[in-house]
Design a protein around this nucleic acid. Structure first.
Lengths: 149, 149
DNA sequence: AGATATTATATCGTACGCGATTTAATCGCA
DNA sequence: TGCGATTAAATCGCGTACGATATAATATCT
């Protein structure tokens, strides 16, 4: 095998790809207990941080398009986690707000970080450092890196 | 905001999730030039490393189920990159082998690593180190970590 | 004010990705 | 040998994910 051949396991992209799937599988049983899928949980994280946002703002936070979010949000609405209401001041916008139930569910996620930390066999500091590096890579890919560098 | 609240940006899972999407978008124009999607490219990496593998073996490498791979492989076959043939020695297995075209395409991916490195603004060593860490996290999640630790 | 451009969601078609189930072939054991 | 258990792919239903397009509302420009 020529030395310049890229094997699968050399690829950072595959490490990230497969780690993402591993995360999804790790969260699955935790999230099933509260009735959410993994992308739905990410949307809830956005709303727990700041309630009552238009679809586009949620998409900016998660880097997702309306074509992804609209059906997802309709499912969250049907399941009773959020409300979707046209903004009276600008009827183009649909504002997403938490229901009582949607707010209450946050309490049930309190021990998620410990579950993740236990499964990772890494310390909180190691996880935070890794998070910073991966987020930095993402931002560089999206042109948000230090422009002068 | 209570100090124990998890914001989106605190979450390693979201860093990985969004970095994965960023990777996909970065590869998209490169892969469109050779007619592959990102998951299809991963399958091709597996086959370039070792030709003529059954579906299940590819799935083990990529951590994917047959329900994902079967349709993907049929599309790769329709596009002329691979052949799907029942193993005469065990008719349950479908062996996937590269076509001439499928083999030839590898040459067109030669400068992908440089594109990634340039976009990442990181050195080869930094990328490799990050890859090791992320792969280690994935393996820990999948129970492959140091069992005695 | 009215035509045009822009903006915010929604819709459509295609491609993953998985759990549950099905189908077909092989294995194992009496 | 024959029959139940196991194995390998494939199928089905559901939920992302995106690009292209459509729809409707607001902004802009004359």
């Amino acid at each position: 095998m020529p030395q310049d051949q890229l094997t699968l396991d050399d690829q950072l992209c595959f490490a990230i790809y497969s780690a993402n799937h591993a995360f999804t599988r790790l969260y699955k049983p935790l999230l099933e207990a509260i009735g959410l899928t993994y992308p739905q949980y990410l949307v809830m994280l956005v709303l727990w941080e700041q309630d009552d946002q238009p679809v586009g703002a949620i998409g900016e936070r998660l880097f997702l398009e309306s074509s992804t979010l609209t059906p997802l949000l309709k499912r969250l609405e049907a399941a009773g986690y959020v409300r979707r209401t046209r903004d009276p001041a600008d009827e183009r916008q649909v504002r997403i707000s938490l229901t009582e139930h949607g707010r209450a569910v946050q309490a049930l996620t309190r021990d998620f970080p410990r579950c993740i930390m236990d499964a990772s066999r890494m310390s909180r500091d190691q996880l935070m450092a890794l998070k910073r590096e991966v987020a930095g890579l993402r931002d560089a890919f999206m042109g948000k890196g230090t422009p002068g560098g």
